[in-house]
Structure formats: C-alpha cells, structure tokens
Nucleic acid binder design. Structure first.
Lengths: 346, 346
DNA sequence: ATTGATAACGCAAACGTTTTCGTGTTGAAA
DNA sequence: TTTCAACACGAAAACGTTTGCGTTATCAAT
C-alpha cells in the first residue's frame, strides 16, 4: 500500500526544499527547467495531488457547499439536490448533505457542525418543526457570522438572505383556472396546515382563482391535512380524511392537491367511492414526480422545476462566494411553474 | 457581522498563550481554575467552536464519509443515503455526496476530488458505464492508497473491499415461487442487460426457481431492457418493448420485473392490452418504493431494505475507520429481502 | 541557604500547503 | 578585480489546532 505522497516527501526524496517543489509543480519561472522537469516527473510518477484539507486551511475556503433538506427520500428534494450538484460540479464545488428529518434539533446540529469551517455556504429548506417554532436564531447567527445562506422552497421573511421559490400562488391559480375551464363547479383543495408556506400560498392561489371567477369559496372544501398523516405508515389516516371530505361534500368535481401524495391518495379514494376520473372528478397535483407520471390515470400536475430551483440556488450561492464584496442586497428568485396535463383532467 | 473567533484571538484578548487557551477549553489540570474559568467564559461568550479544517489537518482525519451513487432521484439510492446518514450522524460523521450519473468519467472525477484528503472513506455503488467498461483502476488505486471503501448493490469481485448486497438470487427465486404457487404457468422476466449484476443475479434466481419447479425456461420470455430506455423521456420505448413481449408471447400469466419502473410499465401495458391484473397477469417488482405503494393496483414487490443497506455499509466503513489495524479480511454482508404482497398478485 | 517538588504557563513542532522575502551563486559589464 | 543583475533556490510565516516538553516562580523540606 502506497500512501498519498506530500510535498515534503518529494522534497526530501529529490533533495530540494518544499517551496521549490511547490513552485515547480505550479510551473513557476523562479525554478530552472531542469529542476521543474525532474520534480514534475517525480510527482506524476507518484501521482501527487495536493491535500484538500491543507489547501482549505490555507485559503480559508473549502470549495464545499452545505445542503440541508428536511427529507431526502422525496422526489422534489432529491431533484433539487441534482440541480445543485450539477452547478457545484461545474464550479469545482463539492456538496455535503445534511438531513433534518423535519426536526428543529437536527437542523441546528447539522448547521452547527457544518458551519465550523467545513463549508463555504449553505443552501437549505427549513424543517417543518422550525417553521412551527418560528425559531430562526441558528440561521440568523450563522448568517451574521458571514456565512452565505440561500433558502429555497420553504422560506421565511424573518431570515434575510438570498432565496429561491416557485410562484406558488400563481401555480395554484392556474391549476384552478384549468379545472374551471374544464367545467368544474365545486373544487376542493387538499393542503397542509398554514405554517407551511407552500401550503398557505397554494391555498391563497386557490382562493384567488375562485374569487376572480366569482365562485364562492367554502371552508368545507378546504382540507388541511395534519402533517403526521404523511408518513408511510399513516396513509390510512390520510385516506380517511380525504374520504370524509368527499363523502361529506357530495358534488365535488375537482380537486387540487398540494403534493403528489395527496393527489394520488385523492384519486385512490375517489376510485374507491366509485367516482370516475376525470369524468366525475378531475384531480391536479403539485410536483411532477415519478408518482404523477406513473399513476393511473396519469396525474395532471403543477411542475415545480425542482432541478432548476437547485441550479438557481447554487448559482446564487456561488456568485456570492466568488464575489468577495459584501453586497447587502439580497435576491429572491422566482422559478416559474408549468402545468403538465395528463389524464386526470379532461 | 462578527466572524468566527479563533484560539489566537482569545489568547490575544486575554493575554495568555494559544496553548493555554486550548488546554483551558479542554479543562486540562495544567491550568489554574481561575484562568480556566476566565477563558471558558470568554469562549462561551464569543461562541467559540474549534475549526474543523484545522482539526482535520492535525488529526489527519476528516470525520466525513464520501458517498458516490449513480443517481440521486431514485427511491432506492436516496433510501440508502438515508440509512448512511443515520449511522454517520450517530458517530459524528458527515456525509458528502457525489453523483456519477451512471458515467464512468464522473465517477472517476468524484472519487479523485474527494480522495485528496476530503474524506476518510468511501461508500459507493458503481455506475453502469463503469460496469460496462470493467475498468476499476480508479477504485483499486484509492483502495491501495489506504482509503477504505465499501461497495453496495452494484458490486464486483475484481474490487477487493467490504461489500453490502442483497440476496438477489433468492429474492427473485421467492418471487417466482410465489407466482407459481398462485397458479402461474408462463412467467416472463423483465430485466437489465447482463453487465448489471443485480439484473443478472435476479435472472439467475428466476431460472433457478423455474428449474426447481420443472418449468422449462424460454428465452422469448426473458426481456433484457436497453438501459437507455430508462430515462424519463424514453418511456415509450420501454413500453413498446414490453408490449412486444406480451403480444408475441400470448399466455403470459406472470411477470417479474427487476425494478419498480419496469413493473409499473408492465402493468400499464398489460392494462392497455386489456389484461386484468392480477386475474390474467400477475406482476411482481423489485424495490418497495413509492411507486409500488401507490400504483394501481398496488404492486407486490421484493423489498430490498435499502435503508438497512445504507446503515450496514456505514457501519462497516466506520468500523474499519475506527479500528486502526489493517485487517486484510473483508466482509460481504448480505441483507435479506422481503416479499411485500399487494394487489398485483392473487 | 540550598534543594526539590509542584503548580501554571509558554514554546515549538506538527499537520500540508502557498507565498513573500531573502540569499547565495553565477556571469558579464565596468 | 570589482560590481551588479539575473537566476535559482531556501527559509519562514501563515492558516487553526493539539500536545509534549521546557521554563519559570513559589513554597516547603532539609
């Protein structure tokens, strides 16, 4: 086993100084051609590569981006990571992933362990628990220590930094408008509790669309799902809640769900209740993921361009990292949504 | 903005030496109680945290695990990462992710940039292109440099290291046995090309099960899907291939697919051809992911315990990292599969 | 008064780089 | 022969830690 070789070892072996080796490998013209060739050949032979850690310490930058997401087994988030990876790789950055599992404590721990020199900046989406507690001191502290942060998807005004979001209001509004144009009169929405911004905003879009089309909104048609129903072993509770919605409110002919899971669950429940999709009920979801694509019938969805979100977030972060000046003007980038029509709408 | 504080700054501020600060913060009894309290209080006030990079350089270990996967937007791989993250966090390790996108070159680049001191060890699954080229020099080199490596899922004998796999042969065999016990007489398999080990092994299990049950195998019933059909915009080609399989071989009453995508595609095509599932054709897939759970009908699958694979891989790696001695005996851990019965089988 | 122990701290090296600033050697010009 | 560039290289500091060892000062014991 031949361990990695260092400048010092090369220097000793070739009987020159460490600085000579360093310069020779950088092709400095301080060093004679003879010596350079000798050193370069030797380095190549032993496959010398500079030690990243030493470089990081010296340069005070790690060329590494920290990404903290609530959940990794999730089409949207993994697609965002893919976007981040793309851009990062292109600029010579590595990506280190932390998963908060929707827990505030995990988020804090992840941030704290990464913020001590391991990374140059953060890209993150807040955990549900953090949103609920409305405690952002950990983020504001790392930001005030000069660590650049880019927030995406689940963002919050109280944190001042670059942000990447989608136009949730408009995405939902367009979806509802599609349903209306397809003849829906009684449209329900399956959303999250209000503290999750995307749920709140999509509900807002739903209400606006109804309002603009002079359809009276009805609280009975608004189902705010308890988070806890989202875990894999609580699907029955989600189904029950949806079933209650459909049974208690006969005549529902359109459903907007704020994520894939809610949407396919709605379709499953509707089918169970004997409703034809899209003939009797039309369904639209959010996130054009694998579920939407392979559901039966195929699910019409509001595509979020998750990959683009990741790319934009990485762009913003890297731009801030590479331009030293501390611009105190932060950018919020809005990524457009796109309706993908499939068979769950007419 | 208050930047992170260092030992040196504390030392200067309190008019002591750096080493005194360091020792005081470690509660060394070389330092008087007075000084310790003063220093500790000051450090706490300024929220001192040791710089990870400096520690890494000094200790020659980074407490970071490098994970390289072929694809991140993928239930199986993201679930494996979740398992790795769990264990890593528990042992104070960070996880840095590289995505090869099934490309040999990307795999090499990822490994090389991470191997230069950024990480203590690798966990990885080989890219398809690497498997095809059968070129493993990059891995064998990093291993020979003393970098611990754990391979999972797509493993290869030519690389000598710890490995974590599932019992593909047996998993497939049990699936086929289930189909046979449910009355299937003419069972097809939708698998990958042979160079992908999991496809090859599952085919092997299929053949063994047929053999043991004295059913003659038939090459016409073995569909080896071209990789390129797997991308999101090539789904029609996959469907066409499956359709050809079903149309050219009437009487197929059972299908084993080596992944979720192939399985739901098979169901979609079968339904399109007017076949009832599971009455006329029963289908079993691999990977108990979100597709299997939410397909209609629910897909019976061979669950791979992806999270357990990740946990085991992380365990193996960390064990090797923490026990310094260079044991030259490598372990191959086999994670058991589990049949999850749903409505796509009788 | 001398010795020796002990307490409390600082020095310096080490991890692997890069880079600034010498320094010694050569050769040519004066 | 002296002087001065130019050339080729080395020493050392710096990044932020940790740690073995050396160095004081104090005080008790002889």
């Amino acid at each position: 086993m031949k361990r990695k070789i260092t400048l010092k070892q090369i220097a000793r072996e070739l009987d020159v100084s460490v600085s000579t080796v360093s310069k020779a490998l950088k092709d400095s013209d301080e060093i004679s051609d003879d010596t350079k060739q000798k050193i370069q050949a030797f380095a190549k032979l032993y496959n010398y590569k500079p030690n990243n850690i030493a470089l990081s310490l010296k340069n005070r930058k790690t060329k590494t981006i920290g990404v903290i997401i609530p959940e990794i087994v999730h089409y949207f988030f993994s697609k965002v990571i893919q976007g981040i990876e793309n851009i990062a790789l292109k600029h010579g950055y590595n990506v280190i992933i932390g998963v908060s599992n929707e827990s505030f404590d995990n988020e804090v721990i992840n941030i704290e362990t990464l913020a001590n020199g391991s990374i140059d900046g953060f890209i993150l989406s807040l955990s549900k628990e953090t949103l609920q507690k409305q405690d952002y001191h950990h983020l504001n502290e790392t930001i005030s220590q000069g660590m650049p942060v880019v927030l995406f998807d689940r963002v919050i005004d109280a944190i001042v930094c670059d942000k990447v979001i989608i136009d949730d209001i408009n995405g939902a509004k367009e979806a509802i408008e599609l349903l209306i144009s397809k003849g829906c009169k009684r449209i329900a929405i399956i959303t999250t509790e209000d503290y999750i911004s995307v749920g709140r905003l999509r509900l807002e879009g739903y209400l606006r669309a109804l309002n603009e089309n002079e359809i009276e909104s009805n609280d009975d048609l608004i189902l705010k799902v308890d988070d806890r129903y989202e875990s894999e072993d609580r699907l029955d509770l989600l189904d029950t809640a949806i079933e209650r919605l459909l049974v208690n409110n006969p005549g529902i002919d359109g459903v907007l769900a704020v994520n894939e899971l809610y949407a396919v669950s709605a379709m499953r429940v509707a089918r169970k209740l004997g409703c034809k999709i899209p003939d009797e009920i039309q369904v639209i979801g959010f996130t054009n993921g694998v579920l939407s694509r392979h559901a039966t019938p195929g699910l019409t969805t509001v595509a979020q361009n998750a990959q683009k979100i990741g790319e934009k977030a990485a762009d913003l972060l890297i731009k801030r990292l590479e331009t030293e000046q501390e611009e105190e003007s932060y950018e919020t980038s809005v990524i457009d949504t796109r309706l993908v029509i499939r068979e769950s709408t007419k």
